[in-house]
Write a protein that binds this DNA or RNA. Structure first.
Length: 204
DNA sequence: AGCACGATCTGA
DNA sequence: CAGATCGTGCTA
């Protein structure tokens, strides 16, 4: 098991967003282990990106994005939801990757309990991901390279031809160039099914 | 101190 | 497609 270290995140944000696909996100919560394979991400490119929080400068809320890579940036939106990002690039270059979806591996039962719902798709959407993995603002600023509470493990790389790209979700307010740029990445559906079946991952 | 608005989700 | 729901950041 290889925990993703700072040098993984301290790189070009679009590359990190792409390469996070296929890696495992692990949460240690109340003695339980909840995990899933990352299948959808979005890149937020800092002060030049009108969809990105630091576009209007540094504030108390977004200050973690200005810090070192490999740190969790968790914030509250819409009066009810948390969103989870990983900070990328070097200090004072405020970029991050938003985690939008995982394929559940371990702790699925627990994910369902946390969400209070059953029998539905659990991990579509960044807020549902946070609910499922018990991620809230208390993890804002947490160092994801420590291998405690919340971290990433290298599983394997998703082949280039199984990665889809498109515009990001929920940023209608952003400038046209940023709205339309392909900064969202996801694993092609067929390959997700393949991951499930082949399941070198499903070691419970 | 007040106000407008979200990197969303749900259910009608 | 509206409603839930509240922290954040801007204006005064």
């Amino acid at each position: 098991m290889k925990i993703l270290k700072r040098n993984f995140f301290e790189r070009d944000t679009l590359l990190v967003a792409r390469e996070l696909l296929g890696n495992k996100l692990v949460r240690r919560y109340k003695g339980r282990r909840i995990s899933g394979i990352v299948i959808e991400t979005e890149a937020y490119l800092g002060t030049d990106d009108s969809a990105s929080h630091p576009f209007k400068g540094k504030t108390r809320r977004n200050q973690v994005m200005f810090g070192p890579a490999g740190i969790a940036y968790v914030y509250f939106v819409y009066g009810m939801h948390y969103l989870f990002n990983v900070v990328t690039e070097e200090t004072n270059n405020p970029c991050a990757v938003l985690l939008r979806a995982v394929m559940p591996l371990q702790g699925q039962h627990h994910m369902e309990r946390l969400r209070g719902k059953r029998g539905k798709e659990l991990t579509n959407g960044p807020a549902k991901l946070c609910q499922a993995m018990a991620i809230d603002v208390s993890l804002n600023g947490w160092d994801l390279t420590r291998g405690e509470k919340l971290w990433f493990e290298n599983v394997k790389t998703v082949p280039e031809n199984f990665i889809c790209t498109g515009p990001r979700i929920g940023i209608d307010y952003a400038a046209k160039k940023d709205r339309e740029a392909h900064r969202r990445f996801w694993v092609q559906k067929e390959f997700i099914a393949h991951m499930r079946e082949d399941s070198p991952y499903e070691i419970y």
